[in-house]
Design a protein around this nucleic acid. Sequence first.
DNA 1: TACTTCTGATGGCGCTTGTCGTCAAATAGT
DNA 2: ACTATTTGACGACAAGCGCCATCAGAAGTA
Lengths: 215, 215
Amino acid sequence: MKKVKQNTETGRTYGGESAADRLARQRRQFMDAGLELFGTIGYRATTVRMLCKQAGLIDRYFYKTFHDTEDLLVEVYTEAVDQIKDKVILAIAEAADLGNPELQINAGLDAFFTAYENARVARVCWLEVLGVSPRIDALYTSRIQDFGDLLLLQGKAIKPSWSLPEEETRITGIALVGAIIQSAMQWLLDDYRSPRAALVNANSRLIRSLLESGQ
Amino acid sequence: MKKVKQNTETGRTYGGESAADRLARQRRQFMDAGLELFGTIGYRATTVRMLCKQAGLIDRYFYKTFHDTEDLLVEVYTEAVDQIKDKVILAIAEAADLGNPELQINAGLDAFFTAYENARVARVCWLEVLGVSPRIDALYTSRIQDFGDLLLLQGKAIKPSWSLPEEETRITGIALVGAIIQSAMQWLLDDYRSPRAALVNANSRLIRSLLESGQ
DNA sequence: TACTTCTGATGGCGCTTGTCGTCAAATAGT
DNA sequence: ACTATTTGACGACAAGCGCCATCAGAAGTA
């Protein structure tokens, strides 16, 4: 009955790293490997062996941090979406100083499309997470909803008089997010052929026209 | 060296069916099985064995008609999308008699959302086809583009003076399709909780506001 | 009736997968 | 120096996969 513990707390240092540091580094290596593989060959084609080879680690350390490849997908997706949401919020906030609502919308959209010029991130966020499991479906819908709410909030901020029928508000926010995502998705699948400004302008016009009409 | 031919032409009748009839029936059985399984447990979880069990046939007949499960997915997806596109076009054409552009838009949207109240179809068209292979990605983008063009054409028909910068026209069409799809997707993943009319109205407003503003 | 074609059932082949165990070498604590 | 922990390399295992071959019986054909 030997203790086989290798907890974060009981573990000793190795290679100049504490147990916690090693765990964190391994996690990061697997996250990077996940983004790389999920974003290129795709989630369903990615195996544990491949992830380990890409990360330069062995499977024991994968199972120590993640339960599944699905588990890893959840974390890679969440990290990517959260980072992009932060960038968009930051861009909108910075543009607020200009006092021009249109420039604010454009700044947010530009930050969004710029972030998704990383094809791996784009592929994971839009092509790979869909239809994997009910758990991930729920995660996806919640993130889309978040973005929709952000858009609605921004719309209200720009034009306080703007209002829609109760039941259609949420749907409209989601629809706007869908417009942005779909154009970005086609952009990705078309090897980013159009200039980013065209994407920004087309979606900006769509949002502005809705804000102007619905008074 | 026996001839093992069982071509459509050389085959004889069996069970009261000609060789061509049998092939067509088997194909239909596999198409139905494909929609059922792809639309419930998902494409990546579906195996040839399952499809055969669901279709009530054995694998020999699967390989006679399809090369892959991916092959079957392509055909199931194409059939579904084509049928829905036909329904939408028909609904728009029928509403043309009323002479009211708004009613025409609503009729098309209502036909669209009605068709996608079939969760299996919706799941195949939006959650399962994405990120499977470059071949299917290309098929998907082309169908989205088709729908976008249909929308732009309809917009021009309703308001001939409507025009956008060259490069942003296609993108705008895709964005509108994205708005419709995303709201429908969230509808699906939310177990169709909202009334269909809310979806129709929210998207109709979005389209009309764009038509009105862009003059 | 004899012969050929078609069908469903069954099992097997080679391969890949997730997962676990073993073992020698490297490192750290005492 | 001695012991315990950590590491990477390697192999093994059952399970499931696509795919193919075989075989008895049903259904047509002559």
